[in-house]
Nucleic acid binder design. Sequence first.
RNA 1: CGGGGUGUAGCGUAGCCCGGUAUCGCGCCACAUUUGGGAUGUGGAGGUCGUAGGUUCGAAUCCUGCCACCCCGACCA
Length: 490
Amino acid sequence: MSKGITSRSEDYSQWYNDLVIKADLAEYSAVRGCMVIKPYGYGIWERMQAILDKRFKETGHSNAYFPLFIPKSFFSKEASHVEGFATECAVVTHYRLKNDGNGNIIVDEDAKLEEELIVRPTSETIIWNTYRGWIESYRDLPILVNQWANVVRWEMRTRLFLRTAEFLWQEGHTAHATEQEAIEEAERMLDVYSEFAENILAVPVIRGRKTENERFAGALDTYCIEALMQDGKALQAGTSHFLGQNFAKAFDVKFTSREGKLEHVWATSWGVSTRLMGALVMAHSDDQGLILPPKLAPIQVVIVPIFRTEEEKATIDAFVDNLMAELKGIGVSVKFDDRDTQRPGFKFAEWELKGVPLRVAIGARDMQNGTVELARRDTQTKETVSQEGLSAKIESLLDEIQVNIYQKALKFRDSHITEVNSYDEFKEILETKGGFISCHWDGTVETEKRVKEETKATIRCIPLDNKEEEGICIFTGKPSAQRVLFAKAY
RNA sequence: CGGGGUGUAGCGUAGCCCGGUAUCGCGCCACAUUUGGGAUGUGGAGGUCGUAGGUUCGAAUCCUGCCACCCCGACCA
């Protein structure tokens, strides 16, 4: 591993890339557009999975698994859905290889599939085809199912975690008897996501609604959480869709209601992906590496011993054994880095790069004085503290760090929401400051598209807590009932 | 799929114009001294120069085809 990473201010993309690779999160693979998530990175993803999965269970959902392959015909059943995904699908056409006689393995043309299979870009179609057989009566509803899976979207340009050809995610797919219930479900899951982003990832998010133009293919309404990265670009961190009866109609999913009438069911779908890893990196990290919020960090505390002799090491070991037992007892995850293959300075730098929130360094000098050195990753500050009451001190410091990381990100985000009232001002802010731009918009797809063409900024969302405010569209001058948030986005 | 660029050790590179089997740094291995912020010294290992062909006594270097990757666009969780 080479020393240091590119500075954030020099080239943000390069900085991000360097960091993801050097912090041991992921790397590019032999397969174009696909990445390898390395054990350390996967450990962080597993923490996200565990916490989210618990929330899903608490809100009444169960996990299930549906096939990777989707018959092509399923796609044509929902018109806007196929339109949204058609241009980025991997397609399986054959089921056998053969030797061509010259030692080359080739596709056996005789083994052509009668109907091509699509590698799922999302699972609405295969799931709704399955739900048809599960639902007959209002007594079968609601169906609240989540799937942890991989999906494939054949993107032209990829970036580690933010956009890869294959990615890991969860997708929830629910079926309800009434429109109201489905809308409530979509909103509930948005709450789950925003609570997770803010309280666990320490990433402040804006909860909002997508415009028609940015809506999910096949949805009537798309809710989203939008986060702001340190370079002033927005990142969609999660979505929750109210699908109406579109998929129920396309896949003929009907139920007999309490009143004895045959009706189509109401649907939602919602998901977050490994993109959250990208959000985490870009929201908090600095030029020394990753900064992980304690509630998410797989390792919350790392202990680095400093010693010259075996006797010194033995004394430190005895103390650390004790400390680790205490910390584990209060639910703090801790690692004792007693490798004799690396020197302390190297370990300090390495764990900082990996974002471990708190470091305890302990040497012979400390053992004499009854102290340890505590170093915070978020503020890069060190203090020498007494060994007395150390675990309680660590516990409260971890809480403090969690809050501090969130507050820092929140302050940055809030100072990067700019209200503008003219198109000139809009372009000016977009180029110089970045971030979210709050302004009036006439509500038409056409205006949104033209602004995008001219500035690359899109409407990230219409915030759910928007206040009503009369105004005029900055682009067309037509009347507007509320402000929306524009930004350049990942 | 359009426009530009690059392929030399695990990574980053020099050499190419002007042909003679490859430079340097990081990393890796061994030993010694070290260990409170990314150690130092000495020694060592590691290469079909993207690939196929051509020119030549001789090709990383010149010529041709092919392949791969990167950047910019269009597309996107």
